[in-house]
Design a protein around this nucleic acid. Structure first.
Length: 479
RNA sequence: GGCGGCAUAGCCAAGUGGUAAGGCAGCGGUCUGCAAAACCGCUAUUCAGCAGUUCGAAUCUGCUUGCCGCCUCCA
């Protein structure tokens, strides 16, 4: 099966073939650690987490590098404001980042390099560019000369002339071309600085990714990812630096994820509609967030709303309820099938076509419905064939969940956690609910339907839904 | 001004030449004391509009309208 990936570089889907057969090298731009991560970061990280998981599932040995930008203007500004060192600030937000990743159950990349730990590599790369006359020094600053790189603009589809026409940047008069960008910035008093052939200073933003990707993945590698907003100038500049320095193609496939909007508005600090991962996880269950983010194609914009989250949450409940239903049948719990079934194959077909998780989730729900139907149809007992079908189907569901990074909890834990979250929000004591249910059971045995229904109504007002099942009465939080 | 994207049912969302996946909501049915859950059936003769290419288009081309993003730090 071949994988097709939409390559931003050529603006079309292309058949994916790695440089080295059976291996995939992937670099993704990670966060600048000066603040908490928001839902947009979550989408990007999740997109590439799923891509890495899928490639592994297809049998590739994946080397996944995701950096931390731990030195930068924003970090310096924030550190000055809060009165702590840049290093301490970066450390704080890296730790917070890991907490978020943990909460979302996102796998660690193979390597997580930090800019500040790769200063020698960065300096070396800048020296190559200076030797090739692609960079020039003014005072203690080094700039990349974009006119020296003839392919400048090939990723973002910009021409130098067009860019000049629409220039909105404040021009540094010292630069040869207004779009020349800093590779090295001379140190201002009080800023963190490293020794270099050009005096004390620190790296510009773009150069770290060129240096670190070359360090860990080589001069040419397979996939480079990031958010759509990084296409220009960041990724364009990386290409100029790396291809300029090494004279070889840089990343072969460029993958860019779309934005997350909040109630149809672009998320921005000025609008005050910034939602951090931590904020969202206060009201939303982590897997719900993931299922939501994966329910649209990664390149499309997606609109984050409470309503959408509620709807997705109901869908997730449905899947876990099915898993619970299977666990309750002894004859289904003992056999395990490892061979992929048709649902998994269909899922892979969806994923092979530019990682179409939305279509893949459709397959997941098909599988869920199929098992529920088989169980409904065999109330008198399960035939051997049906058992085999169900187990194969369940195995597919879990395999799919494994790639999407969902369905990793036992159904009991899932429903317990959801209950306690829901009750916590409303400060309801579960014992009260249990008592009411017992009361209702008594009424039902006495066929006092009026009283029984009354209790059910009371619970519903409390956002509790009753389910009378053959083995007893259960309850759950609405939504 | 330059570059790019999007428009599919009440809502969300797949589908890039072969006759509209899936989720949520709704309606009818099975089940149930009644519900809930689950399942079955129904719910877009039609894919922003117009014109064109084609045996055939939501899918390709052109135009129109409307929304959005990037061009400044940004996932």
């Amino acid at each position: 099966m071949t994988i097709r990936i939409y390559n931003t570089l050529n603006k079309k889907k292309e058949i994916f073939e790695p440089v080295k057969q059976g291996r995939v090298s992937m670099y993704v731009c990670g966060p600048t650690v000066y603040d908490s991560c928001h839902i947009g970061h979550a989408r990007s990280i999740l997109t590439f987490d799923v891509i890495a998981k899928y490639l592994k599932a297809k049998g590739f040995k994946v080397t996944y590098v995701r950096n931390f930008t731990d030195i930068d203007d924003k970090i310096i500004n924030r550190a000055n404001q809060t009165g702590i060192t840049c290093k301490a600030l970066a450390e704080k937000y890296i730790n917070e980042f890991y907490e978020d990743m943990d909460a979302l159950n996102i796998e660690m990349p193979t390597i997580e390099p930090r800019a500040t730990e790769h200063i020698p590599q960065i300096i070396k790369l800048i020296e190559i560019l200076i030797d090739k006359d692609m960079a020039y020094q003014i005072d203690g600053d080094i700039f990349f000369a974009i006119e020296s790189f003839k392919d400048y603009g090939k990723l973002s589809g910009r021409k130098l002339e067009d860019m000049k026409a629409g220039a909105r940047v404040t021009v540094d008069e010292r630069k040869n071309n207004p779009f020349d960008f800093a590779l090295w910035k001379s140190a201002k008093p009080g800023e963190p600085a490293w020794d270099s052939p050009w005096g004390k200073g620190r790296p510009g933003w773009h150069i770290e990714c060129s240096a670190m990707s070359a360090e860990y993945l080589g001069e040419t590698f397979d996939i480079h990812g990031g958010g759509k907003d990084l296409v220009f100038p960041h990724h364009e500049n990386e290409i100029a630096q790396s291809e300029g320095a090494f004279g070889k193609p840089f990343a072969r496939f460029w993958i860019h994820n779309g934005f997350v909007n909040i109630n149809q508005e672009k998320m921005s600090k000025s609008l005050g509609n910034f939602l951090t991962i931590k904020d969202i996880l206060k009201s939303c269950y982590p897997e719900t967030v993931k299922l939501f983010l994966l329910s649209s194609h990664y390149r499309s914009p997606i609109d984050f709303t409470d309503k959408a989250m509620d709807e997705v949450s109901i869908g997730l409940d449905k899947i876990y309820a099915l898993l619970k239903r299977i666990e309750e049948k002894k004859e289904l719990s003992e056999i395990n099938i490892v061979e992929p079934g048709n649902y998994y194959k269909h899922f892979c077909e969806a994923m092979d076509d530019d990682f179409n998780t939305a279509l893949g989730i459709g397959v997941l729900f098909d599988a869920v419905r199929n098992i529920n139907r088989l169980l409904d149809e065999s109330k008198e007992g399960l035939s051997k064939e049906v058992i085999k079908d169900i187990i194969s189907c369940k195995s597919d569901i879990l395999k799919i969940g494994g790639i999407l990074g969902i369905l990793y909890k036992s159904p009991e834990v899932y429903f317990e956690e959801k209950k306690s979250r829901g009750l916590g929000k409303k400060s309801i004591d579960p014992a009260v609910i249990e008592d009411m249910i017992k009361e209702r059971e008594k009424a039902r045995k006495a066929k006092d339907w009026g009283k029984a229904d009354n209790i059910r109504d009371q619970l519903e007002v409390m956002n509790i839904i009753i389910e009378d099942r053959p083995e007893g009465t259960g309850w759950k939080i609405k939504k």
